[in-house]
């Protein structure tokens, strides 16, 4: 009993902080999502309106468009991060001159705040002053304008996300690859498997848990991307990069549409959970069940 009480005492500060900054806001947002509240509207009162916010969502073209581009963004960004991250992790498993320096540089984006990343990419991609449009124009005669081209803006946000978060994937996969036993790989060579077969039949299934954990983390992060994109494109041009996080931000802050913004947040949380659950059911659960 003694050690039990000591444990709770040691945990208490964390629990208190978690309670006030995690649990309370969550339930507050949940509560708000069932209310109509715009403090700067004609009627600034908080009015209970049942599931009206959620009903409105389904017919809200702005929200649906945002959901669409978000899914596209998450798909391209996370997939690219996984592929590039895996290739880099495999490269870091080998010895080459300057490996330590390269690995450090490669990890640097991870320690940068998203808002800084957004600023840097804005500086690099702003037409007429950015280095990237300038180089693309002088080398390939390509006109990159993220202020007018929806495709360009979308692509640059994906590349920015890949630039920022691939190192995380690389680090996790290096950890997974390093911890793999050597024997099954030697055995597979003897069993007649070529490199491609070893990758599909041995490497991939053996790093699958780490890979999926990474996908979960990246999926959740990408679904709630706000600051980088807000800084870079402000959600534009039009609503080309108005991802859900940006959409919520714009609903809640400039429009002060608190009730509706809360409802969108709850839906995004729900979608994230569903997406992770689907991945889990599709990829991990069958393995556990059979074992």
């Amino acid at each position: 009993m003694q050690s039990n009480r000591l444990g709770w005492i040691l945990l208490a500060p964390t629990l208190v902080i978690l309670f006030f900054f995690g649990v309370v806001p969550f339930f507050y947002v949940l509560w708000l999502s069932f209310h109509q509240w715009n403090p700067f509207a004609l009627d600034p009162a908080v009015v209970y309106n049942g599931a009206d916010n959620f009903r409105a969502l389904v017919f809200d073209n702005g929200f649906l468009a945002s959901l669409g581009v978000t899914i596209a963004f998450v798909f391209f960004a996370v997939l690219t991060e996984l592929i590039v991250g895996y290739l880099l992790a495999q490269a870091f498993m080998k010895e080459f001159p300057g490996k330590a320096v390269f690995r450090t540089i490669h990890t640097l984006p991870l320690i940068m705040a998203p808002i800084i990343v957004g600023s840097i990419w804005k500086l690099m991609t702003t037409p007429s002053i950015g280095i990237i449009p300038s180089l693309l124009a002088s080398w390939f005669g390509f006109d990159l304008n993220i202020g007018t081209s929806a495709v360009a803006a979308f692509t640059v946000t994906v590349i920015m996300d890949v630039w920022h978060w691939t190192p995380l994937v690389t680090l996790t996969l290096i950890a997974a690859l390093v911890s793999l036993p050597a024997d099954p790989f030697e055995q597979a060579q003897i069993d007649g498997a070529n490199k491609r077969q070893i990758f599909w039949h041995i490497t991939l299934p053996m790093i699958a848990p780490a890979l999926l954990a990474t996908v979960f983390i990246r999926l959740m992060d990408a679904l709630r991307t706000v600051d980088e994109v807000l800084m870079l494109t402000g959600g534009g041009p039009g609503s080309a990069t108005r991802y859900l996080g940006v959409h919520i931000f714009k609903e809640v802050f400039p429009k002060t549409n608190y009730g509706y913004g809360s409802a969108v947040s709850i839906i995004v949380l729900y979608l994230t959970i569903v997406a992770c659950w689907l991945l889990y059911v599709a990829l991990i659960a069958p393995r556990n069940k059979k074992a």
């Binding site: 024997d183 099954p184 597979a188 060579q189 003897i190 069993d191 007649g192 039949h201 299934p205 053996m206």
Partner: peptide
């Protein structure tokens, strides 16, 4: 190794942990 037409049994058995017994045996 894959072209030598040999079979090997390792001290650690080196079974593929994510494959069933049937899949392990049938792998080659």
């Amino acid at each position: 190794p894959k072209d030598r037409d040999i079979a090997m049994v390792f001290q650690s058995y080196a079974l593929y942990p994510h494959k069933t017994v049937a899949q392990n045996i049938g792998f080659p």
